[in-house]
Design a protein around this nucleic acid. Structure first.
Lengths: 244, 244, 244, 244
DNA sequence: GATGAATGAGGGTTCATTCAT
DNA sequence: TATGAATGAACCCTCATTCAT
């Protein structure tokens, strides 16, 4: 991503002399082959829709061409082949799903409220239609492209897991939680927040994503269970005071 | 091919009723079109390997032909088209995964031991290579064939869920557990038993399935959490006595 | 055809000993392979429907199997291959179309009436749905199987043509008609009787065969033309007397 | 391939309007998908040979590919499927057969000569090898694609029929012919001109098309019959004067 | 640099024919 | 003898990729 902008600032290679360039040194006119970020975005936007709706194999480059509104040849300038384009899409999706998912952990609210907010944000995201489709697409190819799935999980859920582990550690330090295995506790928490929901959505057992109320219900129950199991006496005192 | 004769003497499966059969009850002669269970198994076995390795779209009927060792035309005698063959595979897989998964609930053991045994059986099954591959295959098509995914979940995980709910209800009646929402508690339990594992496996973050020790560790922690949250005073007394 | 009956009377070959045979020497039970006229008829009846409805190429042996109610193998006992079966059908159809078509020429009626009756029988036959379909089927393969088309025409229309020529010759001898080229006159007559109709039907320009009134109208006009051109003074006198 | 450039400078056919075109009116660059008239012609030429030689069903797209010298995919850029390609061929053939067939009616010659010339042109055309093959092809599918056959007849023979009816009407107005039913008379005329020939050719009873002499013989006889039946006294006077 | 027409291998499916039963 | 399951070539059509324009 950065390289796009970096390249703009490099001195143009010799064969580019004669290319239109304004006196301010900013190149106008055509970007180098495969370097126009607008076109790249156009391609990715079209490809995302197609790949996520149909899956990797059922998506055809023609479909993508049509959806993106660019020519076949152009796609192959920006991406070596279907697979690389797909990988770029997956990378992008991962970002758009998991970035900004952990902000809830930084509110200064009480622990229970924070956990509920975080749990809901997580559960909402993971079970919403768009994201379920994207995950299906990734899972669908993970047998043949395990590295792709692995990278998706590593930079997505696993990255978030670490953030959450840090959060729990901080809370533990404050003496509000007591967990023998914080990483495991973190996994337990996230899975409690989606109890039953993730698999129901990913297998299309549910045709609609869970409602906000349902998510709140499941997350609340999960948080309660979590706090009952890992909350310290100190936490209980604090919360008792709070609710008074 | 030789196995044909061996198998021929087995009891014919239920769906063969109505086929020509000699008075002695042993079927003679050639089975009806699409009815030879040996050939059918051959096809299903080949197709299973191919579908589960490659996914529905990437699997070609030629691959299946080759893998099954039958001719292209023969497959179309037994199955109307690729999709029906796929559905048969999914149905079969579902059966082989989820049947006999809930026997652990019927041991007369103590509650904790029973839950651990059940949780381990479940977690083992769901995260083993074969089953992960199968689930990927189903998930991969659930966008375009939601009914297939739905049926898989309904007759697989959801069916098991109900069995487990019945179990929990019985235990609750004995006064050992106290749950406001038994169904939710059941989902929490199963997800706690696979805490983190399912998604790590399904996304190929792990290249190996979890070891028995790891599963035991996760399940034990999950059971403890569950019992701490839902166990009654009576249960605690019983367990205390037990562990003395 | 005759061989069927002949074979019945032959001494059964050695390997037939033990076959059921009544004391009167007439074999009961199974006819020799490919010799049972009932089965043959069954096959031909099924094949006729299929071939005539779909044409040679679009007809599948499976369709015929189903329509005839006999097994694939049996068909190949009676007919070496699809083409031979087709030829048998065409032969049969030819017979059923053109046999008994020339009886009208033997009525003792007056010439005009006889010609009208004959023309109508001809025109009716050639333009009725069943026969149009059959002719399309034959014409459709006449490029690739010219002999088949040739034989159809030769033994069908051409045979009838000769009968009609004989008729016209007899009439000419009676001094009622005077034709320089009787064969040409015969062709002219038959084509006048179907003026426009044949091609309209064969190309499906008409979706319905012509009605009896239409045929009568066309045939009457054709006969009038024909008689005006080839009728002698004697004929005119006779007909004048008749209509008085 | 070289011819491409030669032809490129021809006036583009009507259906090319809207294609990118330089201000000088000469189209530059590559034609749009399915729009290159050279390639289209190449495909049609190949397909025509194959379809007309083998009939619709027996013709394979591979055969056409080979005959046309273009790749399979290319055909499908120009034509949606086999049937549409076939329809295009039939349409083309119809045009090439029936266009310019009625010019003979506009010579200023005497009636008899005009009719003979027209009748011969018609008879020649309809019975020549190429056209017989084409008609067989159309007839062969008219059972399953009646609309195609209907359109062929409507825009071909039926269109010509109307032109001929107009001609006869004009002649009748001049008092040279007297026909109660001009349309029927027109059909009678055309069928007299091919008396016996059309069916003999279409059924492959004749392996060779009729010679010019034969056609002249049949047509002359047909015209004579026609004029004898429908000619007025005035016509006879005119013709008598002419032949003196 | 961008285009999209062209490619031809390979997709799912059907078919005439054979031959073990 | 009659059967119909099995065959595998060939069917129509789609596809990722290339390269002349």
């Amino acid at each position: 991503m950065e390289s796009e902008f970096k390249l703009r600032e490099e001195k143009p290679p010799a064969e580019m002399e004669g290319c239109p360039m304004a006196p301010d040194g900013v190149r106008r006119g055509r970007p180098a082959a495969g370097q126009d970020p607008v076109k790249r975005k156009q391609i990715l936007d079209g490809a995302r829709r197609v790949f996520i709706d149909m899956g990797f194999d059922a998506a055809s480059m023609n479909d993508i061409t049509r959806e993106a509104g660019v020519s076949k040849g152009t796609i192959y300038v920006y991406f070596a082949n279907k697979e690389e384009l797909f990988e770029a899409i997956v990378e992008e999706e991962r970002g758009s799903i998991f970035n900004n998912l952990y902000g809830a952990l930084q509110s200064g609210d009480g622990l229970r409220e924070t956990l509920i907010n975080f749990g809901m944000a997580l559960s909402f995201k993971i079970t919403c239609d768009k994201v379920i489709s994207a995950q299906r697409t990734v899972i669908g190819v993970s047998e043949r492209m395990p590295d792709l799935g692995k990278r998706f999980y590593e930079r997505g859920p696993m990255h978030g897991h670490k953030i959450f582990v840090d959060f729990l550690e901080a809370v533990a330090k404050k003496g509000l939680l007591e967990m023998k295995d914080i990483s495991l506790a973190a996994f337990q928490f996230t899975d409690l927040c989606m109890a039953g929901l993730f698999r129901q959505c990913i297998f299309a057992y549910r045709s609609e994503p869970p409602s906000e109320e349902e998510i709140r219900y499941v997350v609340s129950a999960g948080v309660d269970l979590f706090l009952k199991a890992y909350g310290t006496e100190k936490l209980r005192r604090l919360m008792g005071a709070e609710s008074d």
